[in-house]
């Protein structure tokens, strides 16, 4: 996927799902496909965690136009084979808000902070709030990364997410502590969530999101890329 011009980008995002297969999010409706998103500040180690979990399977697909990195993984849950797409930001943290399509059809969310930097912990509240605006119901967890830097942090309790009942993991992408455990549990929860057909609210939300998404995309494209000048039909 290279050199998509700005004009093309808008058209492809707006409707024609076929032209960017990586971003064809309809596939996430299929039973054997789940989408898991990663959230958290810059440099908390999101990509390093992916790399540690996937090891040899680690083949990130960069979509620089969207500041996005995708990782594909095949997992076995129960007796079923599931294809997992992990969505990671490639620096979009900087814009404070993620693009709505990042959240679209996600089945689980991994929220990461750096135990050496308090600000990344404090910012979890912002990430969580934004997540819940788009995905009120999906399973989510809190991940405290870089415990290898100072193991004493594991004697402390971090209360963010306790009220909401979010599972909490102490992990280290460097020495591997609890990384695989966390990913396996989140994949399982993503699959469980998807198989739970009683979640009517979520479908309604999805419809609303779809509706919202198209509108928002047009706006944000126009703002970010100065598309207004290039595409008069937007006005």
């Amino acid at each position: 996927m290279k050199a998509v011009t700005k004009g093309d980008k808008r058209e492809e995002m707006a409707g024609d799902a076929g032209s960017i297969p990586e971003l064809d999010q309809k596939k996430y409706d299929a039973d054997e496909q789940v989408k898991i998103i990663c959230l958290g500040d810059s440099a908390v180690g999101k990509s390093k965690l992916m790399e540690r979990f996937l090891m040899d399977e680690y083949r990130p697909q960069q979509l620089s136009t969207y500041a996005l990195t995708l990782y594909k993984h095949t997992a076995t849950v129960g007796n079923k084979t599931v294809v997992v797409d992990f969505w990671d930001t490639a620096g979009q943290e900087r814009f404070q808000n993620m693009h709505p399509s990042y959240y679209h059809k996600a089945h689980a969310c991994i929220m990461v902070f750096d135990v050496q930097r308090k600000i990344t912990y404090k910012n979890l509240a912002n990430w969580y709030k934004e997540l819940r605006e788009y995905r009120p119901e999906i399973p989510c967890c809190v991940v405290a990364n870089k415990i290898d830097a100072d193991l004493k942090v594991t004697q402390r309790s971090f209360n963010f997410g306790k009220k909401q009942g979010l599972p909490f993991y102490f992990v280290s992408a460097a020495d591997g502590t609890n990384v695989v455990k966390m990913f396996r549990e989140m994949i399982k929860r993503a699959v469980d969530y998807k198989q739970n057909p009683s979640d009517f609210m979520d479908e309604v939300m999805q419809e609303l999101e779809n509706f919202d998404l198209e509108k928002k995309e047009d706006n944000s494209e126009a703002d970010e890329d100065g598309l207004k000048a290039e595409s008069p039909e937007l006005d």
């Binding site: 912990y121 404090k122 004697q155 309790s157 971090f158 209360n159 502590t177 609890n178 695989v180």
Partner: peptide, 28 residues
């Protein structure tokens, strides 16, 4: 000594309150 799914259970260690939670805002 590499173990792919290396796990440590930290729940057993005594946990003290984290000072990062002190100025308690929403969700903390």
């Amino acid at each position: 000594d590499f173990v792919y799914d290396f796990e440590v259970d930290f729940n057993k260690t005594t946990q003290e309150k984290c000072s990062w939670d002190e100025e308690s805002d929403d969700g903390f």
